[in-house]
């Protein structure tokens, strides 16, 4: 899964930095060197990355919910095991990304608290509901497909721990994408009811998936710094176009119709899509998507109901440490 282009580079405190160090830092980035946790970096670079990586981690964790919604209802044992393994992978990505974010100096607890308090974002695609089994196929096919499009360039991100995390995450995402597409193939080769289920899911997910790439370049404010720092290598619109061009033939193979009557293929072979309804995107970002409240409530519930368990684990660890110290003293 993926965090969309929500990150905003902080520029205000950059002036405070040593100009010489900053120049050296930029020279390293320009030379395609990786920045590592102990290296000097501008405060704004640290802040931008902490925000982006933690948003990405939150997205993985919240992203477990819409798909988790079908684990107990998967139609066959093989599908049940595959879906459970997939959602477990997402959790692993989340853990991995929190660890990458921690190398920048914030703890997982702080980052999670910010998300639970509604201060940190996660990808708004997860604020849409999974209503039928075809949604599970569609999420794998399109949502993971879009995530891969976004994340492959991040494998070359200037920040070493993030880039390395992305390499591993991309491998698993590509497996998920194939798995999702295979669900779609099975549905589209099935009964009329199954085909209709697949088409309905595509109709509902298509536009929100296009929104995953973030606002159009013309209105995107913060890409410049991220591009200079080689956190971002392609613009939102470039990635979106790449995704659409890759996806249209896949939909055609399935015999499904992209819910965009205005879509045409231009002379260069690119599929030109109609204008995206950015009002919907803004509404979902503002907390008014169909599932924003449910997702946050589910995460908060898990966190609150798990508090006594985490306290018990901490208390036991402390007791054991005390006993070991006492034993060593004897």
């Amino acid at each position: 899964m993926y965090t969309q282009a929500l990150n905003t580079a902080e520029t205000a405190d950059r002036d405070l930095e040593d100009a010489g160090k900053a120049a050296q830092f930029q020279a390293r980035i320009d030379a395609e060197e990786r920045i590592e946790p102990n290296d000097w970096m501008p405060a704004a670079y640290r802040k931008t990355l902490t925000r982006q990586i933690s948003q990405h981690a939150h997205s993985e964790i919240v992203g477990m919910l819409p798909e988790g919604n079908w684990i107990t209802r998967a139609p066959t044992l093989r599908r049940k095991a595959a879906l459970l393994a997939k959602v477990q992978d997402e959790c692993g990505h989340g853990l991995y990304l929190y660890a990458a974010a921690e190398t920048l100096g914030s703890s997982r607890e702080e980052l999670v608290d910010a998300m639970l308090a509604g201060k940190a974002k996660y990808s708004s695609i997860f604020n849409y509901p999974t209503l039928t089994w075809a949604d599970i196929g569609t999420i794998g096919w399109l949502v993971d497909g879009a995530a891969i499009m976004n994340q492959i360039p991040l494998c070359r991100c200037s920040y070493g721990p993030y880039a390395r995390a992305m390499i591993r995450v991309c491998k698993e995402e590509s497996f998920h994408q194939r798995q999702g597409y295979e669900i779609m193939v099975t549905l589209c080769r099935g009964s009329e009811e199954q085909k209709a289920m697949a088409q309905d899911a595509l109709n509902r997910w298509w536009w929100p998936v296009l929104m995953m790439f973030g606002p159009p370049d013309a209105t995107s404010q913060h890409s410049d710094t991220s591009t200079k720092w080689k956190i971002k290598r392609f613009s939102n619109d470039e990635l979106r176009q790449k995704f659409v061009d890759a996806t249209v033939p896949q939909a055609q193979y399935l015999g499904l119709t992209i819910p965009d009557p205005g879509m045409i293929q231009d002379a260069d072979g690119h599929w030109r899509y109609s204008e995206i309804d950015w009002t919907e995107f803004k509404q979902v970002l503002a907390g008014n998507g169909p599932c924003n409240r449910d997702r946050m409530a589910a995460r908060r519930k898990a966190h609150e109901e798990g508090a006594w368990v985490r306290e018990a684990a901490a208390s036991y660890a402390a007791k054991r440490a005390r006993r070991q110290t006492a034993q060593a003293a004897e």
């Binding site: 988790g68 107990t72 044992l77 095991a81 459970l84 477990q88 959790c91 798990g306």
Partner: peptide, 29 residues
């Protein structure tokens, strides 16, 4: 156990309980 996936007290347990669930579903199959 799979009912816990996404709702466990800590992420490590989301992973562990799902993992155990996967083993058991595999045995069942």
């Amino acid at each position: 156990l799979s009912e816990w996936c996404g709702h466990a007290p800590m992420l490590e347990e989301d992973m562990a309980l799902s993992n155990i669930a996967l083993d058991l579903i595999g045995q069942a199959r």
